Simulated assay, not measured.
Amino acid sequence: MTGKEVAILRIGHRPERDQRVTTHVALTGRALGASGMYLAASDKGVVESVDDVADRWGGKFFCEDNVKWRVCIRDWKAAGGKVVHLTMYGINLPDIISEIRPCEKLLVVVGAEKVPGEMYGLADYNVAVTGQPHSEISSLALFLDHLYEGTEFSHPFPDAKIRIVPSKAGKQTEEL
């Protein structure tokens, strides 16, 4: 999109409970400019679902499960990347986004269940998307929209087999 590499690290995923939400975290990230998602759990169903969407709707998006989250963070930082932890307890998004925006390599951490306390120390940025409880999906969407300043709406998805044709009413798609 802008030359940035932005990936998501999903931690705390419980396969028996969180499959749909985790899939939506990945799809939100994909639609709004992330390049992929690391899943700190084993869930082939999520991986297959996300891979299927990326295959049909285009673009390059990876989904990798069985990731050890501490190792992922360590390796990301060793490669020069920064870690953004989305939480309700950090610095408010509008107050910190201008500091984050210049970073070319971002790993965005979103939790499912309670995030281990050590995450706050491992993250380069603890970012609050409001100070109220809400969905990790909405947090990720708002963060990416602020990061890309709305340019994600014109992001191309190469190799798509289908696309939506914008229309005032009704549903129109086009096979490519």
Rank of each mutant, 00 (worst) to 15 (best):
Met1His: 10
Thr2Arg: 11
Thr2Phe: 08
Thr2Glu: 15
Lys4His: 13
Ala7Val: 01
Ala7Asp: 10
Arg10Gln: 06
Ile11Glu: 09
His13Lys: 01
His13Tyr: 08
Pro15Asn: 03
Asp18Gln: 06
Asp18Pro: 05
Arg20Pro: 00
Val21His: 06
Thr22Arg: 01
Thr23Tyr: 09
Thr23Ile: 13
Leu27Ile: 05
Leu32Lys: 09
Leu32Ser: 09
Leu32Glu: 08
Gly33Arg: 07
Gly36Gln: 04
Gly36Ser: 02
Ala40Gln: 10
Ala40Cys: 12
Ser42Gly: 14
Asp43Ala: 09
Lys44Thr: 00
Gly45His: 03
Val46Gln: 00
Val46Leu: 04
Val47Pro: 03
Glu48Cys: 04
Glu48Ser: 15
Ser49Asn: 12
Asp51Met: 08
Asp52Arg: 10
Ala54Gln: 14
Gly58Ser: 10
Phe61Met: 01
Phe62Gln: 00
Phe62Trp: 03
Cys63Tyr: 04
Glu64Ile: 04
Asn66Leu: 14
Asn66Ser: 15
Val67Ser: 07
Lys68Leu: 07
Lys68Ser: 07
Lys68Ile: 12
Arg70Asn: 07
Arg70Ala: 04
Arg70Ile: 09
Cys72Phe: 06
Ala78Arg: 05
Ala79Gln: 13
Gly81His: 06
Val84Met: 13
His85Lys: 03
Leu86Val: 03
Met88Arg: 11
Tyr89Asp: 05
Tyr89Cys: 00
Leu93Pro: 01
Pro94Arg: 02
Pro94Gly: 05
Ile96Asp: 10
Ile97Val: 05
Ser98Thr: 15
Ile100Asp: 11
Glu104Trp: 01
Glu104Cys: 06
Leu107His: 12
Val108Pro: 13
Val108Arg: 11
Val109Leu: 14
Val110Met: 06
Val110Gln: 11
Ala112Gln: 14
Lys114Cys: 05
Val115Ile: 15
Pro116Glu: 07
Gly117Val: 07
Tyr120Asn: 00
Tyr120Asp: 01
Gly121Ala: 02
Leu122Glu: 14
Asp124Ile: 04
Tyr125Ala: 11
Thr130Met: 10
Gly131Asp: 13
Pro133Met: 07
Pro133Phe: 10
His134Phe: 04
Ser135Asp: 02
Ser139Gly: 12
Ser139Val: 02
Leu140Arg: 12
Leu140Ser: 10
Ala141Cys: 08
Ala141Asp: 09
Phe143Lys: 04
Leu144Phe: 01
Leu144Gln: 10
Asp145Val: 04
His146Met: 00
His146Lys: 02
Leu147Asp: 08
Gly150Asp: 13
Gly150His: 11
Glu152Val: 09
Glu152Pro: 07
Glu152Met: 14
Glu152Ser: 14
Glu152Ala: 14
Phe153Gln: 14
Phe153Leu: 15
His155Gly: 05
Pro156Ile: 05
Pro156Thr: 09
Pro158Gln: 05
Pro158His: 04
Asp159Ile: 08
Lys161Asn: 06
Ile162Glu: 09
Arg163Thr: 11
Lys168Phe: 07
Lys168Ser: 12
Glu174Trp: 10
